[in-house]
Each structure stands twice: as C-alpha cells, then as structure tokens.
C-alpha cells in the first residue's frame, strides 16, 4: 500500500499513532488550509509530535477528513473539516526520507 493511501486511511480512521509512524524522525506536516479562515496553518514535527498533535485534533473532533480520492503516489484530494469549517484540500508528499518515510507533507486548499 502506498504511503499516501496509508496517510489517507490513518486520517479517515482518526488514528494518530498509525499516522505518526508514516513520518521520518525529522518528518514534518504542514497544513495551510486554516489560513483561508483566518487561522494559522497547522504544523507538527516528528513522529511523536505528530502523534500527540493529531491525538488532540481527533479526540476533540477539531479535525477530520471525508471523501478522499488518491490521484497519484504522492497526492490525494479530500474534504477537510477544521472545527466545522469545510474545505477541499490536496495533500502532497513533497519529500521522502531515504528510508521511504514521509519527510515533508504539505496540505493546501484545492
């Protein structure tokens, strides 16, 4: 299964641990979509940070995704919901680590 598929699955299942394991030790996640609603972008760094960050987001239902479509080995479209604010988003694995993990994941409005 491709990394982008595993990423989407983890997001859909709201599984912060599974999500965190996709990232390299220096991996980062940046989501610029909240800026469209006047909020700062989301940023999480490192597997442990990504686990804790999304544990909070998922448990309080601050964030979830629906209707994902994988369009390549590195990209997926989905609807992202930020505290009730819906946005069409595109997630892109911009860089892989040499061990094949996600080094840099960027999500932007689509």
């Amino acid at each position: 299964m491709t990394l982008i598929r595993q990423y989407v699955n983890a997001m859909l299942e709201r599984d912060s641990v599974a999500l965190s394991k996709l990232f390299s030790p220096t991996g980062s996640f940046v989501d610029y979509c909240p800026k469209d609603s006047g909020k700062p972008q989301l940023h999480a760094y490192g597997p442990e940070g990504i686990d804790m960050f999304f544990r909070n987001q998922f448990l309080f239902r601050k964030f979830e995704i629906t209707d994902a479509t994988i369009i390549s080995d590195t990209q997926a479209y989905y609807y992202a919901i930020y505290n009730g604010y819906h946005m069409r988003a595109i997630a892109t694995i911009q860089e892989f680590s040499k061990d094949g993990e996600i080094k840099h994941m960027v999500v932007r409005p689509a």
Binding site: E48, G49, D51, M52, F53, R55, N56, L59, F60
Partner: peptide
Amino acid sequence: AALAALPIPINY
C-alpha cells in the same frame, strides 16, 4: 478523558 487529549510532550 478530555485531559488525555491534551498531550504533555515531556511525559510522552
């Protein structure tokens, strides 16, 4: 349970 959603990095 709500507390658990506020992770404490130094106690990861």
